[in-house]
Design a protein around this nucleic acid. Structure first.
Lengths: 196, 196
DNA sequence: GCTTGCACATACCAACTAGTATGTATATCT
DNA sequence: AGATATACATACTAGTTGGTATGTGCAAGC
């Protein structure tokens, strides 16, 4: 077991615990007991609880969310199809358990934005990334005649992000995977409106 | 100062503290210090912290959210106009501070649904109420030829709820009132699609 | 005027929780 | 081989936090 392994094991479990309990509900003691390690190991890698949360956002949440959206930059194909495929994939791969726990990004946004500006800044980077990449993809679509010329690309991109988070949110209270599917389908219909 | 006054003062402040810090971040000590009362008063009215949270949902959040949606049942006028007026009002009355703190319902949903089934049940009642009242209003609109006959009323109602929560969510991270306005406007446009 | 019960106030505690101080085994470099 | 740094383990603490046990002023009812 080398050093990077331990650090990543810690971060992975922290992410899971935060996903379930929220950052304020995260208990370092619970995680280290779970991993079979000790406080010494934990505080060897992270100076504080806040640092753990920020590392989880930067090293786990951000990469996993922005992977697709950054790929839009050089992707071939109709931007609306690319976006719809991604939403469809999100809908298809979602398990009841994931829906019940909610979107990790959304959870942290709701909980931490007003409490810790460092958290908000890092979360904003992720949300901005999603929206801006989508906006640019739609704008390229306009330039290529694939997307309606009068489409407000920034507004559509922003609404798509809101629709995704809202779908997660509603499905989470209702504890209903089918609610998530229905709302994602409505979002697909909405996107289709902007095809040229 | 009579008894009901004290109870309501406590609930009001608890709501504010929860709105800002979340339920797990709620500190009873902080609230009673703020109100200038003592533990004795607090635990005279509420048996536990959980009971406070549930009372806040049942007595503050639920009535304020469902007031409009229940009124739909007997309201005159085009259902789409009624809904759009409500969304417009939500957009107009939102202050930067409220946007920064987020939607109280959404906040609690994200934080508490997976942690406490009692909370989730009570929050689900609110969300269900919003969606079902909207659904019925749209269905009446279909019956009266005001709403497109092929509209999936339940899906539209659900998506409207998701759109609202999503708009709050995105605006909260971005700390942007104009983002909220833009997304609410997109939601208005979406609703317009179903006018007969 | 005496009891009863409501509406609090005071003092206190047990459990938890992030964080620290210190020790130690092992690998690496010189 | 000795020094140094890394990667942890152990033990402990200071500050919180929800909750309780107990006391008290007071108004209403008898």
């Amino acid at each position: 077991m080398n050093a990077t392994d331990t650090r990543e094991r810690i971060l992975g479990r922290m992410f899971q615990d935060i996903h379930k309990n929220g950052f304020q509900g995260l208990r370092a003691d619970r995680v280290i007991a779970d991993l079979g390690i000790t406080k010494g190991a934990l505080y060897h890698y992270f100076p504080s609880k806040d640092a753990i949360g920020l590392a989880v956002i930067a090293e786990i949440i951000e990469p996993s969310y922005l992977a697709f959206f950054r790929s839009l930059e050089h992707a071939k194909g109709h931007p609306i199809d690319l976006l719809k495929d991604h939403l469809q994939e999100l809908a298809d791969k979602a398990t009841p358990d994931e829906i019940y726990l909610g979107c990790p990004l959304n959870n942290l946004v709701q909980e931490m934005s007003p409490l810790n500006e460092d958290f908000r800044q890092r979360l904003k980077v992720v949300m901005d990334g999603m929206i801006h990449c989508t906006t640019r993809a739609l704008e390229r679509g306009v330039a290529q005649g694939q997307v309606k010329a009068d489409a407000d690309c920034a507004a559509v991109a922003s609404f798509m992000a809101a629709g995704i988070e809202g779908a997660y949110s509603v499905a989470k209270v209702l504890k209903s995977l089918s609610s998530f599917h229905r709302n994602m389908q409505q979002l697909l219909n909405y996107l289709e409106l902007f095809r040229a």
